[in-house]
Design a protein around this nucleic acid. Structure first.
Lengths: 335, 335
DNA sequence: CTGTTAGCGCTTTCAA
DNA sequence: TTGAAAGCGCTAACAG
C-alpha cells in the first residue's frame, strides 16, 4: 500500500485536512505545524494520489497537447515546443497528455473523451490548415485552449506565434541589403494565414526599397512541384537572384531543383528559408534562415493556457515571440 | 454537471453496478440489459470519469514516455515513435503522459512522483547512454518499463530495437558489393551498445569477404571532430573509399569536412548512414542509409508494455524489428 | 488556526 | 444476472 495523506496525518498527529492544507499551501496554517508536516512528507517521500485529488477537485492537472497531423507536419519544431510545454507545466504541477488522431473524426473524439472524462483541463495545439474544424469545435465546446501558430479564420483565439509579417520583411530586407533586386518568394499550399502575413511583409519590404514586386515571383508551391517552378523561372529573361522559401524541407528541394539546371547556391541564387530545425546548419550549403526558439513557443503557450485555467486575467490573446535571422552559406552579396 | 454513471443508471432503471459492468465488459450481464445500457450511453455521449475509475481501480490507464535528453538526442525518430506509442495506447484505452527532465535528478524525480502519484502505470523510454542510471533506478523501483533501443549494461530488460549487428553487416556488405575495399566506420561516443553491435557487424561482414578490417578506420568521433578525422585520413597512403556513419547529422558533417578537402561524395568517397529521419532524402547528395520504421518501434514498445501491465506472459524480453537499406546518391560503385 | 465530515464517480465484494 | 454498500485518497465547506 502506498503512503496516503491519512498516514501522514497520523504520523504528524493532525487531521488529514491540515495535511491537505499544507500541501496546497493554504496560508492559514501555523509555521510550526507546517514545517512539521513538510518534514514528515519529505521523509516518507509521500506523493499525493492525483486521482483522488482530481476526483475531489474536479481538476485533472493535465494539459493536453494535440500533435500536428501525421508525418508531414511532424517536425523538430513541435518536439521542442512540447519540451517547453512540459517544462512549464511541470513547474505548475501539471502533467502533459499527448493526443493525436489519424483523421479529424479521430482527433475530435480523442479531445472530447479526454475532456469529458476529465483527463485534461485544457489543450495546446499546433497550427496546420486542416485544424480549422478542430478549432471551431474547441471554440464551441468551451475547452480552454491555446494555439501555437496563427489562424486567420479564428483571429481572436488565444495563440502564441512570432511575427510572420515582420519575419518576411526582415528576410526580404536582408536580401535587398545584399543588393538583390529580383527576389522571389515560395510558399506552400498550407498555412494560409502565415502565407498571407509573410506575403505582405515581403511586398512591403520590397516597396519600401522602391522595388516593384513581380507577381510571377510569388508562388504557391504544390507538393513536389519545385522542379517545374524553377524550370519556368530559368527561362524568364530576368530570373530571380534570390528566393525566400517557406521552410527548410522545401528549401532543400529547391536547391536540388536548381542543381539540376546547373545553378549553384549561393553563387547563382541566394536562398533564405524559414527554419524549424537545426538541419539548415548541417547541409551544404548551410541555409540562411529566419529562426525562432521553438522551446519558448511551447513554454509560453503553456504559460498562457495555465493562466486561462487559473482564471487569471490575460492582457492579450496573442503572444508574439521574437525571431532572428541566422546568416549562413546560402546567401551572398551581388554587385 | 457532466454525465455520470449514476445518471445513466437512473435512465436505464438499473443500479450503477450494472452500468459499471457493462462498461468493463463483464460477461455475466444479460444481452438485454447490456444493449439497453449501451444505447443510453451512446445517446448521451457518456464518458467515464477517469479519475474516479483510477481511484477505485488503482490503475491510471496512463503510460509514461520519457523523452530523450535535451536537444541533442531529440529527433524525428522519437517523435514518430511517440506517435506509434499513442496509437497503440489509445487502442487499449490508455493515455500517454510525457516526461522529460533537464538533469538526471529531475528525471528520476519526475518518474517517481508520477508513479507514486498513480499518474502512470508504466514507462517507455528511449535509449541514450546517460540513461544508464535511470534504468538501474527503474529496475529497482519495480515500475514496468520498456526501452526503445538497447542497453548492454542491462541486457535483460524489456526492449524493442532493430538488429544493429545485422544492420551494420548489411551496410558493409552493400559497400563491398560496390567493390569498395577500404571501408571506414565512424561512430559516436554515445550508444556504447549499439556501437559495439555495429562494430561487430562491420568487422564480420568484412571478414566474410576476406577483407581485413583496418583498425585505424574504426573511429569513435568526439563531438565536432569530423574535420580532424577526415584530415588524418586524407594523409594516409590508402584512404577509405567509403565511410559508414552512425547517423545523418554526423554524415552531413563528414560531407562538409570532405568538401573542405575537395573530396566529393560519392565521386571520391561513398557514404552510408544510419538514418532516423527523412532528412537524408532531401540533402544533396541524398544519403544512402540504413533505416527502420520509427513508428512501429513505438507501437511495438507500447504493445510490450501493455502486455506487461496486463500480466500477459511475454515470450521474449527483446523484440527485434526489421530494417532496410535505402540506396540514394551518396554511394557509387568503384572499379 | 485546526478538526469533522460529506462527497467526488467509480469498482468491487458480498448478498440476493 | 443484478443490487447494496463499502471504500479508493483527497478537497472543501462548515464548525469550532
Amino acid at each position: 500500500m502506498s503512503i496516503t495523506i491519512k498516514y501522514i496525518a497520523e504520523l504528524a498527529g493532525t487531521s488529514i485536512a491540515t495535511v491537505s492544507r499544507v500541501i496546497s499551501n493554504d496560508s492559514r496554517i501555523s509555521e510550526r505545524t507546517r514545517s512539521k508536516i513538510i518534514k514528515i512528507i519529505v521523509q516518507h517521500g509521500y506523493q499525493p494520489n492525483l486521482f483522488a485529488k482530481g476526483l475531489a477537485s474536479k481538476l485533472s492537472y493535465n494539459i493536453g497537447v494535440l500533435l500536428p497531423n501525421p508525418a508531414k507536419n511532424v517536425n523538430i519544431h513541435s518536439l521542442k515546443a512540447v519540451r517547453g510545454i512540459i517544462s512549464q507545466a511541470k513547474h505548475h504541477g501539471y502533467n502533459v497528455l499527448l493526443l493525436t488522431g489519424n483523421s479529424e473524426q479521430d482527433v475530435l473524439q480523442s479531445i472530447e473523451s479526454r475532456y469529458k472524462g476529465r483527463s485534461m483541463d485544457g489543450l495546446i495545439l499546433f497550427y496546420t490548415s486542416d485544424r480549422d474544424d478542430v478549432i471551431s469545435y474547441l471554440n464551441l465546446s468551451g475547452i480552454p485552449f491555446v494555439l501555437i501558430g496563427r489562424n486567420m479564420k479564428h483571429a481572436d483565439i488565444h495563440a502564441v506565434d512570432y511575427d510572420q509579417f515582420q519575419a518576411a520583411w526582415d528576410a526580404t530586407h536582408f536580401l535587398v541589403q545584399l543588393n538583390h533586386q529580383n527576389i522571389a518568394i515560395l510558399h506552400g499550399p498550407e498555412h494560409v494565414t502565415i502565407q498571407s502575413d509573410r506575403m505582405k511583409g515581403y511586398q512591403l519590404a520590397l516597396q519600401s526599397s522602391r522595388i516593384e514586386p513581380n507577381p510571377d515571383w510569388c508562388i504557391v508551391v504544390e507538393k513536389d512541384e519545385e522542379d517545374i517552378i524553377v524550370w519556368t523561372w530559368i527561362n524568364s529573361p530576368e530570373r530571380p537572384t534570390a528566393i525566400i522559401v517557406q521552410d527548410d524541407d522545401t528549401a532543400l528541394k529547391v536547391v536540388r531543383a536548381l542543381a539540376k539546371l546547373k545553378l549553384k547556391v549561393p553563387d547563382d541564387v541566394s536562398i533564405v528559408s524559414f527554419s524549424q530545425d537545426t538541419m539548415g546548419e548541417l547541409v551544404s550549403p548551410s541555409l540562411t534562415a529566419v529562426h525562432t526558439d521553438s522551446y519558448s513557443h511551447g513554454y509560453e503557450a503553456a504559460s498562457m493556457l495555465l493562466q486561462l485555467l487559473k482564471g487569471t486575467r490575460i492582457e492579450s490573446n496573442r503572444k508574439i515571440l521574437p525571431h532572428g535571422i541566422k546568416v549562413r552559406e546560402s546567401t551572398r552579396r551581388i554587385d
